[in-house]
């Protein structure tokens, strides 16, 4: 379970995140939407302990992330907006390297199976990552996150720059993760995908969570209206 209590981040005079209160239950897929600078990435960075909160705290499975970062990291996986890989290594080798860093030793079959699950098939897995498209690198990033077998996955605009087919594959995977009781927190601009996969959508504006929507309660058009209204109010 992911939880934020009065989570605040301030950069000098600028308030990037303002007293965020959030609870995401196991198996829930929570999408954060909002304009650029609304605080989505800041929220994810605070959960990953990339940055320290000015006040408040973030928790994963009741572990305070700022206080026990090493322990908290075992419960968290991360898929960045653009996955960068070691170009001289193949997809399989990159997966091996990053999963070893996380303390997981995978068999060759496990690695191929994870890459397959993430959508990277056959010979592509053994090509050098320098030859990969953005979508292929994103798939390796997903496989790295899956290999960690974490209870929560944080995604920062994971569909950005992906073609429709790759975006669709990712959506299916996120839904599947939800059914496996994995908590997902995803920052995205893609309202269509958000409505498709999320159990809750949080709309952020100027560092505040201004509205929470259940996708089942609104249509695509209504969701878009709500989001646009939030952005125009900035």
């Amino acid at each position: 379970m992911l939880e934020a209590k009065q989570l605040t981040k301030r950069y000098g005079e600028r308030l990037a995140l303002d007293a965020l209160d959030l609870q995401i239950a196991p198996g829930e897929v929570y999408c954060l939407v909002g304009a650029n600078g609304a605080g989505k990435t800041t929220t994810i960075s605070l959960f990953l302990n990339f940055i320290s909160p000015t006040s408040g705290a973030a928790f994963v499975n009741d572990i305070c992330i700022a206080e026990q970062p090493a322990l908290a990291k075992r419960h968290l996986a991360y898929i960045p907006e653009t996955v960068s890989l070691y170009g001289q290594l193949s997809g399989v080798e990159n997966l091996d390297y990053f999963s070893t860093l996380a303390g997981h030793r995978l068999s060759k079959d496990d690695k191929l199976s994870l890459l397959e699950r993430a959508g990277l098939h056959g010979r592509d897995a053994n090509r050098r990552a320098s030859e990969y498209s953005k979508g292929m690198r994103q798939k390796v990033g997903i496989a790295i996150a899956l290999a960690k077998n974490a209870s929560a996955i944080l995604m920062d605009e994971p569909t950005s720059g992906l073609d429709p087919q790759a975006s669709n594959e990712l959506s299916l995977l996120v839904k599947q993760l939800g059914t496996q009781q994995t908590t997902v927190l995803m920052a995205t601009h893609d309202l269509y995908r958000a409505k498709e996969v999320a159990s809750h959508i949080g709309i952020m504006r100027q560092g505040r969570l201004v509205e929470t929507v259940k996708p089942g309660d609104v249509s695509h058009a209504e969701l878009e209206m709500i989001a646009l209204r939030s952005m125009q109010l900035q």
């Binding site: 990435t41 960075s45 302990n49 990339f50 940055i51 320290s52 700022a66 970062p69 907006e81 653009t82 996955v83 960068s84 890989l85 070691y86 170009g87 001289q88 990552a129 320098s130 030859e131 990969y132 953005k134 690198r137 950005s160």
Partner: peptide
């Protein structure tokens, strides 16, 4: 630093070594 890498100014996006 690993508990707080904000000063390292991570690029939000980038192609990594293969970019």
């Amino acid at each position: 630093k690993s508990s707080s890498i904000e000063r390292t100014q991570l690029p939000k996006s980038g192609g990594g070594e293969n970019a």
